[in-house]
Design a protein around this nucleic acid. Sequence first.
RNA 1: GGAGAGGUGGCAGAGCGGCUGAAUGCGUCAGUCUCGAAAACUGAAAUACUCGCAAGGGUAUCGGGGGUUCAAAUCCCCCCCUCUCCGCCA
Length: 429
Amino acid sequence: MLDAAFIRANLEAVKSNCKNRNLVADVDKVIVIDDERKKLLSNIQAIQQKQNELSKLIPKEKDLVIKQQLAGEGKSLREQANAMEAQAKEIESNLKSVLNIIPNMTHPDAPVGLLAEDNKEIKHWGQPRKFDFTPKDHVALCDSLQLADFEAGASVAGQKFYYLKNEGALLELALVQYAMNTLVQEGFIPVITPDLARIEVLEGIGFIPRDPDPEKRQVYTIADTDLCLVATAEITLGGMHRDQVLDEANMPLRYAGLSHCFRTEAGAPGKDTRGLYRVHQFTKVEMFAFCTPEQAEGIHLDILRIEEKIFQGLGLCYRVIDTCTGDLGGPAYRKYDLEAWMPGRGKDGDYGEVTSTSNCTDYQSRRLNIRSKSQGQKGTRFAYTLNGTAVAVTRAIVAILENNQQADGSVIIPEVLRPMIGKDRIVPR
RNA sequence: GGAGAGGUGGCAGAGCGGCUGAAUGCGUCAGUCUCGAAAACUGAAAUACUCGCAAGGGUAUCGGGGGUUCAAAUCCCCCCCUCUCCGCCA
């Protein structure tokens, strides 16, 4: 969420930012409500001041009648203050719900546009493979090599659930290991996070688990609790330091978090319905950084560099996308995606998103109340948060299988994964 | 899941209705002393919000939320968390 004072000072910029992001938000209302809030607050404080002064008089007062009278006065002040406080609470929750809709500001260099076509390709690595046979898609490969069982997944948990089997299962473990190792080498702290988190934490990160429209809810909630299944370790990693003041001497704090990810995919009916591309559950290694405002942009580029390093290591062709304003998520100030070439996607192959890294500035930390402080500096400031995918396992598997398939139906395992799998090729059984 | 104990400033730890934004110790910072340091001594030091051009006020905060009271760190209720013991379990 943005700071109300910032919105007040940058009203027009905030409005045009909403427009660029194709969002309707009542920005003016923030100021109206905030004015109301401030006025009420100062009235409350004046009453509280009177209350405090009065309370100090009472113990000194010898005359019982006057004492009685002062107490009565105090009581009426308390009642006034209570009523106003209830009102203030309501105003604050109104303010919060208006603020929640307003997205983060946008990096001045991010491409402006509303459609996916407005995204800008800023880099390309490798060449899409040319086949001298007709390549299969990953669903066919999973089937012929017995790497996944979608029928069993559907039978046990429903559509878009799956079992990984044989080298499919080993591939997941190997990818996790590969990603973790790479990140540890880069100085990240490896973490395995909870797969569940409280609703407030999800909201702090920018999810809306309580969206009144069930079609829009992206996460599963656990009945009779205030918990959700996490959609990404970004949630649990970001929540890790909530309500804390971090020492800037220790920043940036960089974590490599492993978790399962659960997504209802409610808004995407009929899209990518087959196979592993869009599923309700997958495993992911996520990068997350807490840093100072000064460090954020450098770290963002560094996360992108690491994502590239990981996919180059897997030998996969990809392009890097600078996401346009209309495609940015609410908390993101700027976002880069890696899209890997997937020969089985669409009619003749297509790029598919495999990673995404966002600089969320202080948008998340403001809600999660994550501050930082440096020695000798007065006061605190909100930490900046960044996140990025290291490996989303199912998407990586799609790209590996489709790109590395051979005419004889086998699939060559990327060299970096061979030590963990113990072979260099998956052959039909 | 059951029983008990507890959550106070950077840490340790007192306070158990008003004089407590909070003793004391340690740590931190500045000064005195010193060639320099240590020790000793002296002093400073929370965060957020809010009013004000500023100087400087005010309000809130002792795990969180409610309540009692003129007045709550202190009393009552609910929740969260930590520790110990028991149970259960991978």
